[in-house]
Design a binder for these strands. Structure first.
Ligand SMILES: [Zn+2]
Ligand SMILES: [Zn+2]
Ligand SMILES: [Zn+2]
Ligand SMILES: [Zn+2]
Lengths: 162, 162
DNA sequence: TGACTAATTGTTATATTATAACATAATACT
DNA sequence: AGTATTATGTTATAATATAACAATTAGTCA
């Protein structure tokens, strides 16, 4: 495997419009395939979540959504979030009560999050080793793993040099 | 290492008073050593948190605390929680917004939590392998780890057989 | 097409989790 | 005792999330 920083931490220099469009396109296809409805509100919400690689709070989302959709209320946002979460188009960062776009929406996966406390950006890893060790060590306690929350705080490559 | 379930999952059959007293005693000593004040409110709060191996919500804590302390208000609880968290006497389970007693308060440690979705009990692991793999895989992205949240949901040995 | 059904969104209210701000009290230090 | 520091009391409010029911929209099919 390559030893370059995960793509997300290139965010300073990359063409982020490509990220957004790619995410929306993938979502479009996934929903079509699953025959579920990727409505306007859901699209707008996903697009806002992808507006950066930083996790976004539900009420930030609401404030922004209201610029286009004057009558938006909390349930509007939470329903869209629920839909996007259920379909693995986004993830919730539990330790921040915030939401980020999923980098592998077309793939069943177990991910880990690197959260930079410098620039507040997030990278999503999908590391088989981490998953394997967790599952194995839990099994040593006789525990059967169903789901994992792995959120790692620290400094991204860029922020280490600041 | 032994391959028995972690102590916490013995909760059905164990002498839980021993857990409570041990936790309070350790806390007492740790606070004395650090020359920080283990006040009545902090003791009561820690004792309530240790009343089971299930994570407890801040407002549950408040309701219970009020039985002894009629004028308790949210800041009372949150201040006690802050103190206990800062001194590693308890942990917050981020995915539940709930709090559990720490099993290794006298030791600097990085822990992982096994959360049983059957009986809602929690076990705290302090597994060097998990920590090591996470740190190593993060480093492959150039990421410097400062802190970890690892919360694993699934079924404990007992609940697998129900 | 138009009636029927299911899914989505609108709307109001409220529950739950957590903190701000300032007053008072208890403790530690000289 | 007098002062500084830490802890607690008290009131208000911020931030996160859901319940409940009404209205609308989209899909189904006679
Ligand atoms: Zn991007
Ligand atoms: Zn950074
Ligand atoms: Zn611990
Ligand atoms: Zn169990």
């Amino acid at each position: 495997m390559e030893k370059f920083p995960a793509p997300s931490f290139y965010a300073h220099r990359h063409n982020h419009n490509a990220c957004i469009h790619s995410a929306l396109n993938k979502a479009q296809h996934i929903c079509a395939k699953k025959e579920i409805r990727f409505t306007r509100i859901r699209q707008q919400t996903l697009e806002l979540i992808w507006s950066s690689h930083k996790p976004i709070l539900a009420y930030e989302l609401l404030r922004t959504l209201r610029r286009e959709k004057h009558n938006a209320e909390p349930p509007t946002v939470y329903r869209a979030l629920d839909f996007l979460l259920e379909n693995q188009l986004i993830h919730k960062i539990e330790s921040l009560n915030a939401y980020v776009g999923c980098h592998f929406p077309d793939k069943d996966h177990i991910s880990q999050f690197l959260i930079c406390t410098g620039c507040h950006q997030i990278a999503e890893l999908e590391d088989a080793n981490v998953n394997k060790v967790i599952t194995r060590q839990a099994a040593r306690s006789g525990f059967q793993v169903a789901q994992q929350t792995v959120e790692i705080r620290g400094l991204c490559p860029t922020c280490q040099n600041l």
